[in-house]
Structure formats: C-alpha cells, structure tokens
Amino acid sequence: MELDDLKNTWNNMSNEVQQQPHLNTEKINQMTSSKYHSRIKKIAYPEMAGIFICITGVAFTLFNFSKLNTVFFQATAVVAIAVLLLLSAISWISIRRLNVTGDVNKPYAATLKNFAVQKIRFHKLQKINVTLSYLLLVCIIILLPKFFTGKDITSNNSFWIFAFSIGYIFLLFYSKWVAKYYSKSLRQAENLLKELATE
C-alpha cells in the first residue's frame, strides 16, 4: 500500500466520520467542564500509593532503629531510609510531570521536541528507580530478620554465599531486562530529537 492508497482509505474513513455527527451541544458542554477532567488524578494514584508506602517504610525503620545494635545494621538502615526518600522524590517528580500539559498552541514540532526531551529524562529517572529498588531489596533482606526476630542473618556464612551468587545472577538478568525494556523507546526519542534538530 502506497501513500496514495492510504489516501483513499483515509478519505473513506473521513466520509464515514462526517456522515455521522457525534457531538451535540450537551456533550461539548460536559467535555469542557473541569469536573470530567479527572483522568490524570486517577493515573497518579499508584504513584501516590508508592509515596505512602515509602514514607511508611521510613517511619517503620526509624521507629525500630534502636533494635539495630551494630554499625553495619545502622548504616544499612540509613541507606534504606535514603533510598526510600529518593524513591518518594522520584514518584513525586513523576506526578508533577504527568500533570503538566504544555502550551497546546505551539507548533507540533516544538511539542514533539519537548516530548522527546521529557521521555529521555523519564527513562533516566526510571533507570535510577530500578537501581534504587534493587539496593532497597538488599537492605530489606538484611534488616527485616533483625527487626522481626532480632536475628543477625549476616553472621551466617551461608547467607553471604547465597546472597552473592544468587544476587549476582539476579542483578545480571534484572539489569539486562531493564536495558532491553527501555532501549528501544529511548532510541526512538533520541532519533526524533536528532531529526527535529535538522529542521
């Protein structure tokens, strides 16, 4: 199918759309009303839930900090708190960016440029997010037994053998999956930026 064949298909579609009007005054009035404009808020709910979980995690760690009797555990807890706060900040930034609809009167190419830049930034944030999540997972494995049973699993030699071997394999596959998941989309955004730069 060439462009001119596509044009025929398009014209047929246009005729069908035009033959059947869909928008009456009442519908347009409803659509222009802000009370129906709640989609973004709903989309932000999972992010907000994420922030809530992270803050709860910080509170829980601080509340139980006295149970951590060695510098190693205390340092792990500090890292966990820092990671949880960073994850909350990333979620908050994501919500803010999601809520921003830029100037819709700008030329299409300018909007595309902005979109590609935002997409690249988003992917960078997501990569940081994934890396931090992995770090958090390690901290949780170390801290939870201490919090709930008072046991120090790190003093068990088999823990370290297990942690290093399984952890390394998991990290290897995890990072490959993350790279594969984001690379195509990122490449598209970068190519689009390059093309727009020549305009």
Binding site: Y36, H37, S38, R39, I40, K42, I43, Y45, P46, R97, L98, T101, G102, D103, V104, N105, K106, Y108, T111, L112, F115, Q118
Partner: peptide, 17 residues
C-alpha cells in the same frame, strides 16, 4: 499537540471518566 501530551499517560491506563 494534545495527542502528543496524552502519550505520556497512554501506558498508565486507568478507567476513563
């Protein structure tokens, strides 16, 4: 332009209004 901005939320689908 709106269609492009909407792409930001396309993969984070929730029930519509």
């Amino acid at each position: 332009n709106v269609a492009i901005y909407q792409l930001k939320t396309a993969k984070r689908k929730v029930t519509t209004v």
